[in-house]
């Protein structure tokens, strides 16, 4: 193999598509992380994000594939119905977590873990039932990028344009929707009545209760919203990125999302930015793999990058993260 210089590696890796990939990879993480933020702000730990994403990724594809047969709808429209089905699946699954942790006051980590295991088993089983094979479903139609641009010939302004369009304009709709959701949720959390009450619930539910705010209703709403957002995350994975569902395809993204929520200090925009950092690490890993023979570092190291970053960021660099004071504690009236 010919020797390759550092400069060459850098110029090959640092291209618009590196950053575009970071944004793309960050999208499901960010959606789930914002869901986690809303859920934990209400005082309920949501370790089930992983399972919620997984189940909605599956039902998104399954609904999109069923559409032509059942409703006679084909093409991208079927995939959009799949997105709605994914949201619904996320909400239904989240309602289990809400019922267990709010109504039954069970341990929220145990409930979340149970949902993760259930989601893994259920999706694997349903692949066999629906598609008579193991591992992977059929492919649904991918939702295409919102804008399509051809690179312009090089030179001054054109280079800048190519960078901008390459990084920001080639994405699928949910990528943009995610950015809108992050900003809207941030605004809602700090400016609206809903946000003020949500923050009160997670910090001091009894204080909220004593001024007549329903803790149970507020927490149910929040958990179901996190289900809807995790559902969108699952839909993005299968219907915008991959096309089909394969077993355990979330591969820990739900947990990285949880970390992004913490790193983002329980704020929606913070969660998005943290997800972006993790997305960048993964995008970098994918591109650096091309140089495995050149850089004398074991390939496993690159695979580890996003996870190491998670650990380093949470343990080392962010100082003390202050969680909502009442998070994880079931609310008991006296």
């Amino acid at each position: 193999m010919p020797s390759v210089g550092v400069a060459e590696i850098v110029s090959t890796v640092v291209q618009p598509d590196l950053f575009a990939a970071a944004i793309r990879i960050a999208t499901p993480l960010a959606l789930a992380a914002i869901g986690g933020t809303i859920c934990e702000r209400s005082g309920v730990v949501n370790i089930a994000l992983e399972g919620l994403m997984l189940i909605s990724a599956f039902f998104g594809v399954a609904a999109a594939l069923a559409c032509p047969v059942v409703l006679g709808i084909t093409g991208v429209a079927a995939s959009w119905i799949g997105v709605l089905a994914a949201i619904l699946a996320g909400v239904v699954m989240a309602s289990l977590h809400a019922f267990a942790s709010i109504t039954l006051k069970s341990n929220q980590v145990v409930s979340g873990t149970a949902i993760n295991i259930l989601a893994l088993g259920l999706t694997g089983f349903l692949i066999q039932v629906f598609y008579q094979r193991t591992g992977t479903t059929d492919s649904a139609v991918l939702i295409p990028p919102l804008f399509a641009f051809d690179p312009k010939p090089s030179g001054g302004l054109a280079t800048a344009w190519n960078w901008f369009s390459g990084v920001a304009l080639g994405h699928t709709p949910l990528v943009y929707i995610t950015i809108v959701i992050a900003i809207a949720a941030q605004w809602a959390l700090y400016r609206t009545r809903w946000g003020l009450r949500l923050r009160a619930l997670g910090e001091h539910p009894r204080a909220a209760d004593t001024v007549g705010i329903s803790v149970v209703r507020g927490r149910y709403m929040a958990v179901l919203m996190s289900g809807a957002l995790a559902g969108l995350a699952g839909a993005n994975l299968t219907l915008e990125q991959v096309g089909s569902f394969s077993e355990n395809m979330t591969a820990g993204r739900g947990f990285i999302a949880l970390a992004a929520n913490i790193f983002g200090r329980w704020t929606p925009v913070g969660s998005y930015l943290a997800a972006l950092l993790f997305g960048f690490a993964e995008a970098l890993e994918i591109r650096l793999q091309a140089f495995i023979g050149v850089i004398k570092i074991p390939p496993q190291f690159f695979l580890m990058l996003p996870y190491i970053l998670t650990v380093v960021v949470l343990a080392g660099f962010m100082g003390r993260a202050v969680a909502p004071a009442a998070v994880g504690k079931p609310y008991e009236k006296e």
Binding site: L196, A200, R206
Partner: peptide, 14 residues
């Protein structure tokens, strides 16, 4: 029964 992370005003009108 005060939410420590909210302001005095926010607590009063909650």
């Amino acid at each position: 029964m005060l939410v420590e992370t909210l302001t005095a005003t926010e607590n009063i009108v909650l």
